[in-house]
Computed example of a mutant assay.
Amino acid sequence: MSILRGFLWLLGFLLLGDILVTLLHLPISHGVAGMLLITAWLMGRGRLNNDIAIASQALIRLLAMLIMPGVVGIFFIADEFAGHWLAVAVALVVGTLLSVLTTLWLMRRFMPGVEATSEAAPNE
């Protein structure tokens, strides 16, 4: 039952993001707006909702499948990128590097045991 409550929380914030973007005519994705709302809510609470954590873990295992439709969709609009491949390639490389660096920074910040474990190993 906990996973269902978690999915309902996630769906609720997705719908709130959809409403916010539609009403305010914001130039961002509905999903991104929902993620920003849930992030602000969780930061305001100061702790993680256990139901959301359980539902999120189930979604993380399916992440590649959730991303795939967007990646496949690029093939249908590839002709619109004609003459802009350098900009697209630079954006992909820079975006990937920033994503990896951000993930590394967050992991080191919120998982202090990872850094301590590597430093605690003796160099013999």
Rank of each mutant, 00 (worst) to 15 (best):
P122W: 04
L15C: 05
P122E: 02
G83F: 04
G70T: 08
I38K: 00
F81V: 10
R45L: 11
R61C: 01
G31L: 15
W85T: 04
G34Q: 11
H25G: 04
I60V: 14
I3R: 14
G46R: 09
L20Y: 05
N123F: 08
P27C: 09
A116I: 06
M68H: 03
L63W: 14
F75K: 06
N123I: 15
H30C: 06
R5Q: 08
L101E: 11
N123W: 08
D18K: 07
H84T: 07
L104F: 06
L10V: 07
V32D: 00
R108P: 00
A58Q: 12
R108Q: 09
W85N: 01
T22F: 09
G12L: 15
M111I: 07
L37N: 04
P69M: 04
L10F: 09
P122D: 03
I19L: 14
V71E: 04
T103E: 10
D18H: 13
A91T: 13
M35G: 09
V100Q: 04
L24C: 14
W9D: 03
R109V: 02
D51N: 13
T102Q: 06
L92S: 10
V94H: 00
V100E: 02
I19T: 12
I38D: 00
A78R: 08
T103K: 06
L10C: 11
S2T: 11
F7Q: 13
T39S: 14
V21T: 14
S56L: 11
G83P: 02
M111K: 12
L106V: 09
L48N: 02
R108S: 07
I77C: 06
L23F: 10
L66M: 14
V93R: 00
H25E: 11
L10G: 15
L26I: 12
A91M: 08
L26A: 13
R108F: 12
L10Q: 13
V88I: 15
L48S: 09
M107E: 06
T103F: 11
E124V: 12
D79E: 10
P69I: 08
L14N: 05
N50M: 10
R109D: 02
H25V: 07
V114M: 14
G73Y: 07
L42M: 14
N123S: 13
F81W: 10
I28V: 15
L14I: 11
A121S: 05
M68L: 15
G83E: 03
L92R: 05
A91F: 09
M111S: 10
L98N: 13
L101Q: 06
M43L: 14
A91I: 11
A40T: 09
A89V: 11
L14Y: 12
A120L: 07
L37D: 03
G70K: 08
G44I: 04
L37K: 03
W41P: 00
G46Q: 08
L62Q: 15
I74K: 02
L20A: 15
H84W: 07
I19C: 01
L15Q: 03
L36W: 06
P69E: 06
R61Y: 12
L59P: 04
L26M: 13
L59V: 09
